[in-house]
Nucleic acid binder design. Structure first.
Length: 303
DNA sequence: GCGACAG
DNA sequence: ATCTTGTCGC
């Protein structure tokens, strides 16, 4: 059957705003918001939360006891090194070959930051591999255009991974996006891998029910509103999912989960729920977050 | 012109 | 995202 050619991903700082939004429309058009993967949510279930109080669990590539045929879930997250000014004499030679000036400007902020991208591969409840990449950032954060700032760094971390992922769990939105092309969608489409996004805050769209004071495991659909340019208002683009709640309180906010690529909105909730083990964030994201922080701490500069 | 906005 | 110790509440 005919197949839409995969859009190329060029996070070039010189790209115009229009070019970026146009590329996102192509990404969204190439994305599949239907289930296209060969396993069940139960196959990636993580029953026991990893204990991160004594450091991260050791990676065990040679499955000791765990099922080597279980799907590989890869969590991806980032940490940042900001405020890196360019006036430091004797800067480490790893500087970027700057094309002219930095887009610094009037507000004093520069783009001389670096991203630490971390990817953690989990199979049958065990970590089988850690990978990371440190990438200079050249594009500022703009709501809706996050993929152009963090996409390449995330792909770098994925490239550093030796195992083949069966599912990517990204930090941020997927289909819950102005053009249905959040960073989870970008990454999924570019690698043509099943992917989903887990965000702590809602970018756009409207919950069917109020998300306040909800018990654990509660969920409600997120419908496209007038801010979602590519979908008919009312279209379900993701869900609010209350992954955890304290026994006698109701202050924890829900997660906002949405399809990235090759996963439906409904199944996205099931997949996230399967990888949650008592904490607000799903285990793949918790571990990727911790790994990114660990790499960042070990980097020259802060000891 | 006003509002609104992942990491 | 990041800057950051202790601390109020269950």
């Amino acid at each position: 059957m005919a197949r839409t050619p995969r859009p190329e991903f060029r996070p070039d700082p010189s790209l115009s705003h229009e070019s970026m939004t146009e590329l996102q429309r192509e990404i969204a058009a190439s994305a599949a918001f239907t289930d296209q993967f060969g396993f069940e949510p139960a196959d990636i279930a993580i029953d026991d939360a990893f204990d991160l109080t004594t450091g991260l669990p050791e990676a065990t590539p040679e499955s000791d006891g765990s099922n080597p045929d279980a799907p590989v879930v890869v969590g991806i997250d980032q940490a940042f090194l900001t405020g890196e000014t360019k006036n430091e004499a004797g800067d480490d030679g790893a500087g970027d070959d700057g094309a002219g000036d930095d887009g610094a400007g009037d507000d004093g902020t520069t783009d001389h930051d670096r991203a630490v991208s971390a990817a953690v591969a989990i199979r049958d409840g065990a970590v089988i591999e850690y990978a990371h990449a440190v990438t200079p950032l050249s594009i500022p954060y703009v709501p809706g255009l996050l993929a152009f700032r963090e996409g390449a760094p995330m792909l770098d971390a994925l490239d550093a991974l030796s195992v083949e992922p069966d599912l990517l769990v990204c930090d941020g939105s997927g289909r819950i996006h102005f053009r249905e092309a959040g960073i989870a969608t970008h990454i999924g489409v570019i690698r043509d891998l099943p992917s989903l996004g887990v965000a702590k805050r809602l970018l756009c769209g409207e919950p069917v029910e109020s998300v306040d004071e909800r018990p654990a495991d509660w969920q409600t659909p997120i419908r496209a509103d007038n801010r979602v340019e590519t979908a008919e208002p009312g279209t379900v683009i993701g869900h609010a999912y209350q992954s955890r709640q304290y026994p006698n309180s109701r202050r924890v906010n829900p997660l906002y989960v949405s399809p990235g690529h090759r996963v439906s909105a409904e199944t996205t909730v099931d997949l996230v729920a399967a990888t949650c083990a008592g904490y607000k964030l799903p285990e793949p994201t918790r571990l990727a977050d911790a790994h990114a922080d660990r790499v960042k701490r070990r980097l020259p500069g802060e000891d």
